[in-house]
Design a protein around this nucleic acid. Structure first.
Lengths: 123, 123
DNA sequence: ACTTGACTTAGAGTTAACTTTAAGTGTTAT
DNA sequence: ATAACACTTAAAGTTAACTCTAAGTCAAGT
């Protein structure tokens, strides 16, 4: 799979894919004889994972750490799990914060509905 | 209310409060004879609104637009409501995206639980 | 042979949203 | 009165996460 195909498949720009690899967020992608990236299934799995985590607001820095733990093998299984547990907690907090904001926004919208129907009466 | 008090009350740094005012995200805050900000209830309401929206991921740019509509008076009630409706939609999408990520994260964690309990058996 | 187009790199540039700095004013405590 | 402290401004600096640029390689089409 070329970088263009992967880019299309996951809707991540080629620049960003190269950036992720460059900063060590994913392991090096296999290359062909001309040095051109040839993404295999392992690479794609990484990208899927990264995409999910990034959209959940996990920082690039934390993902680099995760990958470094992965590289160190099975001895880091527990550490990796802890890292993910921490991120899950953050994610939950973020979600409940957003839900609180959504409620406030709903209230504000209700206020607009009331005011607008008021002014209609007066017209 | 001084900027320090407002900063404490809403947990927003004085720098950020000044920044919000400077870029036009909130109307000018009243000043005393020495040019020192003296936040009144109206200013606080704005800050509360901004804080809620920012934590919901609404961009500063959109909030400036909202405030500009507000300044133009009642004729913009409908436009403001539309702006908020749009932002609510974005917020809902963001929340369901995060919930999807949370599920994936849960699956990954379950995988870790399985693998770790496996390796315990072997020891 | 030449152009087109996708790929490569290192490194510079961009964007949003602050955050810090420098230089200064005014109020309060000793 | 002098030091400490909270405030003021404009403008420069920072940070994360890309995104673009320049300069180049390589394979395929005309």
């Amino acid at each position: 799979m070329t970088i263009a195909e992967v880019s299309k498949r996951y809707d991540i720009s080629p620049d960003t894919l190269r950036y992720y690899e460059r900063v060590g967020l994913i392991p090096p992608v296999p290359r062909n004889a001309n040095g051109i990236r040839n993404y295999d299934e392992a690479s794609c799995s990484w990208i899927e994972l990264i995409k999910c985590f990034r959209s959940a607001g996990v920082q690039v820095e934390a993902l680099i750490e995760y990958r470094q733990l992965y590289e160190q093998g099975d001895s880091t299984l527990y550490a990796r799990k802890q890292l993910l547990l921490g991120q899950r907690e953050l994610l939950r907090e973020r979600i409940s914060e957003l839900n609180a904001s959504l409620e406030k926004l709903d209230k504000k919208l209700k206020w607009y509905d009331d005011v607008i129907s008021e002014s209609k009466k007066e017209c």
